[in-house]
């Protein structure tokens, strides 16, 4: 059975989106390969002189690049970063990230909606990073978002799916791919998110801070695939207060 993820004009077999921060350039390539990654985020920063190595040389061909607008504190700054990123000629995808809270790094949904509207009109494939709020997600969808990317927990915290119930609401109510973005710390949490019915999981710190980064990338790949299959299979029901024997209740041996 064909089971692909469609975002904007592209189709993906992988549901593991990689954040490319905190890795050495050499490890970036290994993580992408081990994770079966087809989409990876990048950040935009002031360039250095002197022909320093560029991350683009370490990202295998065919990977869809998802520039983020990290550093933006409002919609206007996010739009500026997105436009500059597009000038680098790596496609129209953009992950909007608007943060003006430097302690918890929580996103500003209101400014994110404004940036989504402007950039979608300019032909960007907009994937907003957001706090999982249903009204905001609806507004982002109306503004032209191609997906929504709710956080599981604060960025880089590895605390997992703290917002599980609210992400489930987005899965049920929003007619766009829902991608859990920040906070996923373990493969089991990525699997759990996929079991909820999210379309993909993005991880960065969870992989980058593992002892064996390459092996953790393959572990995430397997967990995300397992969770997806579980979702497609339909989870078995839960009994609240009783038990139900799995073995036959007839034909017991007698004394």
């Amino acid at each position: 059975m064909k089971d692909t993820l469609v975002i904007g004009n592209k189709e993906f077999n992988s549901r593991f989106i990689l954040g490319s921060g905190k890795f050495s350039l050499e490890m970036t390539k290994i993580v992408i390969e081990n994770g079966g990654v087809e989409m990876a985020t990048l950040a935009l920063r002031r360039a250095n002189t002197g022909g320093k190595e560029n991350i683009l040389d370490y990202i295998p061909k065919g990977i869809t690049l998802l520039p983020n607008t990290s550093g933006a504190r409002n919609a206007q700054e996010a739009v500026r970063i997105a436009r500059l990123a597009r000038e680098l000629g790596c496609g129209d995808f953009v992950k909007i990230e608007v943060i003006n809270d430097s302690k918890y790094l929580l996103p500003d949904n209101y400014e994110t909606i404004k940036a989504t509207e402007i950039l979608a009109k300019e032909g960007f494939i907009v994937m907003p990073y957001m706090y999982p709020d249903l009204t905001a997600a609806r507004n982002m969808a109306d503004a032209g978002a191609a997906a929504v990317m709710p956080l599981g927990a604060p960025i880089g915290s590895n605390k997992g799916l703290l917002t599980k119930d609210f992400i489930k609401i987005l899965v049920d109510e929003i007619d766009l791919p829902v991608i859990v973005d920040a906070g996923i710390g373990r493969p089991s949490q990525a699997c759990e998110a996929m079991e909820l019915g999210v379309s993909a999981v993005m991880a960065n710190t969870a992989v980058a801070t593992a002892n064996d980064v390459g092996m953790m990338a393959s572990s995430f790949k397997l967990a995300i695939e397992a969770g997806r299959k579980a979702w497609l299979a339909g989870l078995g029901r839960v009994l609240e207060y009783e038990a139900e024997a799995s073995s036959p209740l007839t034909g017991f041996l007698e004394d």
Binding site: L56, L65, P67, N68, L84, E87
Partner: peptide
């Protein structure tokens, strides 16, 4: 104002200009 790549050769600079020169780096 963003300068499109195709205009890099014709775009002349003067001493009172302000440039931002950016590139991709790793980031989540």
């Amino acid at each position: 104002v963003i300068i499109p790549k195709k205009s890099f050769e014709t775009e002349m600079l003067s001493d009172n200009d302000k440039l931002e020169i950016v590139c991709f780096v790793g980031g989540g």
